[in-house]
Design a protein around this nucleic acid. Sequence first.
DNA 1: TTAGGGTTACAG
DNA 2: CTGTAACCCTAA
Length: 300
Amino acid sequence: MGAPKQKWTSEEESALKAGVVKHGAGNWRIILRDPEFSGVLSLRSNVDLKDKWRNMSVTANGWGSREKTRLALKRSQRTPGYDDDPMALSTEVESFEDEIVDAKPLSISSGTLQISGTKRSIPRLDNLILEAITKLKEPNGSNKTAIAMYIEDQYWAPPNFKRFLSAKLKALTSTGKLIKVKRKYRIAPRLSFSEGRTSGLLFMEGRQREASRVEKDDHKPFTKSQIDAELAKMRNMSAQEAAAAAAQAVAEAEAAMLEAEEASREAEAAEAEAGAAQAFAEAAMLTLKSRNASKLMVPG
DNA sequence: TTAGGGTTACAG
DNA sequence: CTGTAACCCTAA
């Protein structure tokens, strides 16, 4: 554990962690392309980011969960008394030394969007959940414990994370984003509507009968047609406008989720509200992402 | 371009 | 000598 070759500085590590929290793990090129992070990580490549993140994850993990590493491969001698449990549940996973690193005001590129009121930016839990399910690669889906474990391992764990996650999973299931079978969650088959031509607004289309415990379906702040209309408007926006709108939607969704969490007594309505807001936010982000991927390719 | 496996260099 | 972190190579 010493200081071997070109040791990463604290600034670089902080930038990496902030970038992962902000953009999500895996988008190394996006993180590197960010003007804020590129200042510190200019001499680092995307591969370096990935490797560093891997090393950090492995170190923080304590290799007690589900990692092979080369250690398991190299060390073939295992004690016959106890073999490693693939689903070791350790609820006391402290993250790195610092908890929330992302204290800087989140600024969308070119989008002069000031999100006032939000204390700290919650990383899109939706994407985290989807990422967790994707990375876990469970054929039958992943249960809440596995998802929570993954997120807690890879990112940081808020104090009331479990309640947060439960509410979020419920909301995602209600909106058809996830499919819940028994106790496992799977990603809904229609998740990509890459085409902006047809107004295929899918998530609330043909399902809702699969949800086992849908208690309330009454009035929602955002109806399906309203979301569709908003997205249709967004497609005609400029990139900056779309980015701002998407960020605003995400912020509102997060705020709604926070309110839903805090109002834990009659959280049903607030939960539905947050779910609808998140559905729109997610769709907006996907639309924005498609736009950026097809149009805004800025060569480094 | 990213994820993963493997190798090298350095610290204990 | 062993373990760890950076580095390197390759497949998807």
